[in-house]
């Protein structure tokens, strides 16, 4: 396997990382995601890393890059499912995962994304109200 699948769901892109990534896989994911954001005009990217048993500075940098690049492309990134041991290790190592938002799980992550970009389902009724 040399690619992590990226799923599209409305305005969002979803990525679930279920195995520890080889570097090449991680850098592929980075470029694939940015291209997908461009192609689909996605407003949010949700990355589930609950399958990662460790996040080292390389993986941390990839996540940060995805966040920053998506930001430039007008999309927010939320990383969810960080294992407690991974969180503790990240902080001791000195990694802060700058540029990405985090949430406990996929559900909370989706809520956060919707909040960040303003959910379309919330906006459309307002539009109707104003036109009346």
């Amino acid at each position: 396997m040399d690619r992590i699948p990226i799923l599209r769901m409305g305005d969002f892109l979803l990525v679930t990382i279920q195995i520890d990534l080889y570097d090449k896989l991680a850098t592929n994911l980075e470029s694939d995601l940015v291209q997908m954001v461009n192609k689909t005009g996605a407003r949010g990217v949700l990355i589930d890393i609950s399958g990662l048993s460790i996040v080292d500075s390389f993986m941390g940098r990839i996540l940060g890059n995805i966040g920053s690049m998506s930001k430039i492309m007008d999309a927010e990134t939320v990383v969810v499912g960080i294992q407690p041991a991974v969180a503790i290790t990240l902080i001791e190592l000195g990694l802060e995962l700058k540029g990405v938002h985090t949430a406990l799980n996929v559900e909370k992550g989706m809520e956060l994304l919707k909040e960040k970009i303003g959910s379309p389902s919330d906006e459309s009724p307002q539009d109707e109200d104003s036109s009346e």
Partner: peptide, 17 residues
């Protein structure tokens, strides 16, 4: 334990890189 394992493997990963 899982936490110490995670710390050790992360440290090892950094050094090997």
């Amino acid at each position: 334990g899982l936490l110490n394992q995670t710390k050790l493997i992360t440290a090892a990963s950094e050094l090997v890189r």
